Simulated assay, not measured.
Amino acid sequence: MADAGRGGGRADEELANVLERNIEALLARRRAEERRQSRTDRVAAAIGRFAGSMTFVYLHLAVFGAWVLANAGVLPVPRFDPDFVKLATFASAEAIFISTFVLVMQNRMATQADKRADLDLQVSLLAEHEVTRLIRLVAAIAERLGVDESRSPDLPELERDVDPERVLDRIERAEEKAGERERPGA
């Protein structure tokens, strides 16, 4: 006898359709967010992506290597920075700008992560609410049918809705207590 949950069939097609729909919705949302970005944000992101690439590393190896070899007298070209002050100034200015672009990208990524975390929280809260309702429904059916498990002492706790505010308050109190224990002299 074949297992109903395996081997393809309608359930797999429905799951594939849901996954496809979700992926398309996420990609469409990401494209829309990219279109709404200001020109400055797009330029900063492009520079940040380039600065974080191996092409950037290879380019710098070539340019700085040639600069050093030329000014050390190894290459047959006139020395234009024999004490490497120009190189140090250029590298310092570049580092300032690149770190700024990296910070801009990190801020943007943090904002996106916050949005995703909010979405995850909402989906989790909805799922928890739906599961709680299902537990109540199944418990009522089990009780009506006289199933022993319907009298389990765990059921009343599982049938209660979770209050996210109370959970957050509890987490904050636990973090405060942990912080007090870690502080010297506490």
Rank of each mutant, 00 (worst) to 15 (best):
A2D: 12
R6V: 07
R6E: 08
G7D: 11
G9P: 03
G9C: 14
E14V: 14
E14K: 12
V18M: 10
R21L: 13
N22W: 12
E24L: 13
A25L: 14
L26E: 10
A28M: 08
R29K: 13
E33V: 00
E33R: 12
E33P: 00
E34R: 15
Q37D: 10
R39K: 04
D41S: 14
D41Y: 03
A45C: 09
I47D: 05
F50N: 04
F50H: 05
F50G: 04
F50T: 06
A51T: 04
T55L: 07
V57S: 10
Y58D: 02
L61K: 04
G65P: 00
W67M: 01
V68Q: 00
V68F: 02
A70Q: 14
A72N: 09
G73F: 04
L75G: 09
P76N: 14
V77W: 03
P78I: 06
F84P: 05
A91V: 11
A91R: 00
E94T: 04
F97P: 01
F97N: 04
I98F: 11
T100H: 03
T100A: 13
T100L: 08
V102G: 08
V102P: 01
V104M: 07
Q106M: 08
A110H: 09
T111Y: 05
T111I: 14
D114H: 14
K115E: 15
A117C: 08
L119I: 09
Q122F: 07
S124G: 09
L125A: 12
L126M: 13
T132L: 01
T132N: 03
L134D: 04
I135Y: 05
R136G: 08
A139W: 08
A140Q: 08
E143P: 01
V147C: 11
V147E: 15
D148W: 07
D148Q: 07
E149Q: 05
S150G: 09
P153H: 05
E159V: 00
V162Y: 05
D163H: 14
V167Q: 02
L168H: 06
A174R: 15
A174K: 03
E175Y: 01
K177C: 01
K177Q: 15
A178N: 08
E180V: 00
E180P: 00
